[in-house]
Design a protein around this nucleic acid. Sequence first.
RNA 1: GGAGAGAUUCCCGAGUGGUCAAAGGGGGCAGACUGUAAAUCUGUUGGCUCAGCCUUCGAAGGUUCAAAUCCUUCUCUCUCCA
Length: 407
Amino acid sequence: MNPALETLKERGLLQQCTDLDALSSLMDKGPITFYVGCDPTFHSLHIGHMVPFFAFRHLLKFGHTGIALLGGGTARIGDPSGKTEMRKLLSYEDLDRNAAAIESQLKPFLGFDGVHARTDNNKNWLADLNYIDFLREIGRHFSVNRMLSFEAYKMRMETGLSFIEFNYQLLQSFDFLELFRRHGCKLQIGGDDQWGNIVAGMELIRRVEGGEAYGLTFPLVTTSDGKKMGKTEKGALFLDPSISSPYEFFQYWRNISDADVLRFLLMFTFLPTDECRALVAPDRNINDAKERLAYEVTSLIHGKVEADKALSGAKAAFGGGGDKNAMPTVRLARSLFEAGYPVLDLFVDAGLTPSKSEARRLVQQGGASVGEQAWKDEKASVGADLLDDGELILKAGKKRFVRVLCD
RNA sequence: GGAGAGAUUCCCGAGUGGUCAAAGGGGGCAGACUGUAAAUCUGUUGGCUCAGCCUUCGAAGGUUCAAAUCCUUCUCUCUCCA
């Protein structure tokens, strides 16, 4: 098999391919152009979105040319694949803003140079489409019977599928066709939920242009307990540091299940395969592997400086040395402590708890610590005497720490 | 356009005049067990000046000593028919 495809396979980034043999020999002959799409439905990507972009980088490394397609046009509709409900329609302004934000998140990761890696936005060709022309030229190639048989729509057949969403597949197929025409793009990669859309695009290219194109999907990333990673999940881990701080980001990876470590090392880092396997060997401490994973991914997304800080902060918080300065820190006025800081207020102000009621619960359930000491009395106040050199460590539960700093 | 059904706390989903801050499940949080893991068990899960009070059951009015529960109007969703 072609080495690039081989790499994707051993990295767990290959779920299905429309014609693996043919694609492999095509890629053997020389660099090809591929694309991956991403709809700007929010102003930040989350880690689940990154899987295709890891594959993107692998393919770049093998000399292929990638296009990251921002779905400024398709996002006006919303992809129904795998969703239970219609997505809220966003304003064009929001979509433009989101697309710009996402592009700037991808830039450092993919290093768009305009030659080997570039972006495009399908708004460029979708926004001003003429409906009648589109139906004549593109719509006639789609069989509704066939579309209805796609797994992607099954779920929505239960809850209802609007016509606008039903068109999504045509638009995505049209994207593929456009990229094929404009840039000779012959491969679309994406999550496995995109299979139907990808196949449809491939077929459209064959019908309209008589061209050969391919599709390749990655497994949908779930955690070993079956939860969807990122995507619809609530506690999605975003790339935007103002939503998910680098420290939180690091901790997410540090705390994944044992069963996921190898898979995630392969998927979300560029460590050599052998090294990934060695890290999880039975004679090695699995926690070291998690730490390495956390460090590597954080470094890829937030940069080495932030990764070092997060690692150091985590060590300080969990008692493995490290640097306290790198722990999540909150500044509070010393005078508040001198006056006696009610614990509940303190926990809220430190951001460990969203409300005083929750702070109260935390204390009552024995999850609160002030300066390494369990704090039992919800009514008591924290005085300045507990400050150690203007500093105080607060703990909520076992994993959430904040270092309070007073001037 | 016609006929029905529905909108409940983060999500799903009970509740049909007071005993409802609202069953149950999911998720979250905390405790025990551990390895900053998983699984399991336990507790907890609107807010506050917390044995009390305040705000929540699509929106606005109304009936009542008392409404998530009854009436009116409105908004939205779904199903069936045309």
